[in-house]
Amino acid sequence: MLQYFLMHKDQECGILILDEQSGKIIKYQGNGNGMSPYLGTANIEKIRKWWELRAIPNSRFNKQTTDCNNAKAFLAKNLGLSITDTYWIKPVEVNLSFDDVKLTNSKSPFDPNVSLGGQMNKHWDLTQKIPTLVKESNSYFGQQCINEVFATMLHERQGTAIPFVRYTTSSVDSTQCKCFSQECKCNAFTFEHIEFVSAHEVLESQKTRNEQSLYDKFISICESNNIDVRDFMDYQIMTDFIINNTDRHFLNFGVLRDTSTMKLIGPAPIFDSGNSMFFNDDGKVVHTRVSILKQQISGFYKTEEKILKKVKNQNLVNANLLPIPSEVKEFYSNAGIPEEKSSVISKNYEIKLQLFSEFQKGKTISLYNERRK
């Protein structure tokens, strides 16, 4: 058993005891200064969950390349460091500062990828001026990476003030938005003075009232921290619906925080839209309106019709600026997706456009109504 300080930059958040073989946190005692994860509310149960989510998934952990038993032990060996925030663990008997260990320090011996979540293969390229995330898509014809570039194009055309991450590929012609690679890249949106706090942490920072939905709770906590995320959430919900993003779970959106004042700044930019555009369909059957609305999604609700009901400002997306189906077919064909699958993607996307048009005109999107038809 080893004893560490949980640190936020050079501020001590508390003391934890960690089993170095298993990587499990045995004990945590916060010091009550509001610096701990979960907006300063972390206890032992929350810290264990935070540590588990911080480690890379077991599916991406390669025991042969390390001398660690599992991903959590590997995380501990690398002091729990991350590119997206300034938390780390410091052995109590060692004199270290954040400047000594931070991943952007060229002399740092620690692996920047030990806290990089998600199932897709990915890594940080720290040779660039801004840390660059490189994602690899080796299934579904590489469509998940292509989808990130498509989502970027969609947001750029909107000319929106809503923040979003811009993805490119190594073989993209930026003037024509072509993508022929299974690899996509984006710049980090966090820096030493700005960090990411996931929606999961925000939601778990307070208890939920029985009458309050998780969505309303997220909005309320943000408002209590003096940031307004309603427009952001409306825009993200609608664009996720349009591109059929089924994976907006609580770790791939959130808020930004000033690492010095610990005050929330605003919503983090939209990122991680790869699980969209019907990427895991067999590519042969065009959806019906019923089958599209029957899809299960992750996030606040299990269906799209329920999350759409939370939208207050339906005009944040300009439907006239959205790509049309023929453009979608051409985009995916040029990206290397087989012609048949590209055609099906565009036809399914056309159904989403029809549903979205009806939604903007005030019609309730309802699986029940579609089944009655």
Rank of each mutant, 00 (worst) to 15 (best):
H200S: 14
E201D: 15
S205C: 13
K207N: 15
K207R: 14
T208W: 05
N210D: 14
N210M: 13
E211S: 12
Q212D: 11
S213I: 09
Y215K: 05
D216E: 14
D216S: 12
D216A: 09
D216F: 01
D216I: 04
K217R: 12
F218V: 10
I219Q: 07
S220A: 13
E223Y: 03
E223G: 03
S224L: 12
S224A: 14
N226V: 06
N226E: 11
I227V: 15
V229D: 05
V229A: 06
D231V: 12
D231N: 15
D231Q: 11
D231C: 10
F232H: 13
M233H: 07
M233W: 06
Y235H: 12
Y235P: 01
Q236K: 13
I237Y: 04
F241M: 06
I243C: 02
N244D: 09
N244E: 07
T246G: 00
T246N: 01
D247F: 02
R248N: 04
H249M: 03
F250C: 00
F250G: 01
L251Y: 04
N252M: 00
F253D: 01
G254K: 00
L256S: 02
L256A: 03
R257N: 00
R257F: 00
D258F: 03
L264A: 07
I265P: 09
I265H: 02
P267D: 01
P267M: 09
A268C: 06
A268N: 05
P269A: 08
I270A: 11
F271E: 07
D272N: 14
S273L: 11
S273Y: 00
N275W: 05
S276P: 05
N280H: 14
D281L: 15
D282E: 14
G283I: 11
K284V: 14
V286Y: 01
V286A: 10
T288I: 10
S291E: 15
I292D: 02
Q295Y: 04
Q296N: 15
Q296V: 11
I297S: 06
S298K: 13
G299I: 04
G299R: 03
Y301A: 10
Y301L: 04
K302C: 07
K302Y: 10
E304M: 10
E304V: 07
E304R: 09
E305Y: 08
L308A: 06
L308P: 10
L308Q: 08
L308D: 08
L308Y: 04
K309Q: 12
V311C: 10
K312E: 12
N313P: 04
N313C: 05
N313Q: 08
Q314W: 01
Q314R: 14
Q314H: 09
V317P: 10
N318S: 12
N320E: 12
L321M: 11
L322S: 05
L322Y: 05
L322P: 04
P323Q: 02
P325R: 05
S326K: 07
S326L: 02
E327I: 01
V328T: 02
V328G: 00
K329Q: 13
K329E: 14
E330W: 03
F331M: 02
Y332P: 03
S333H: 00
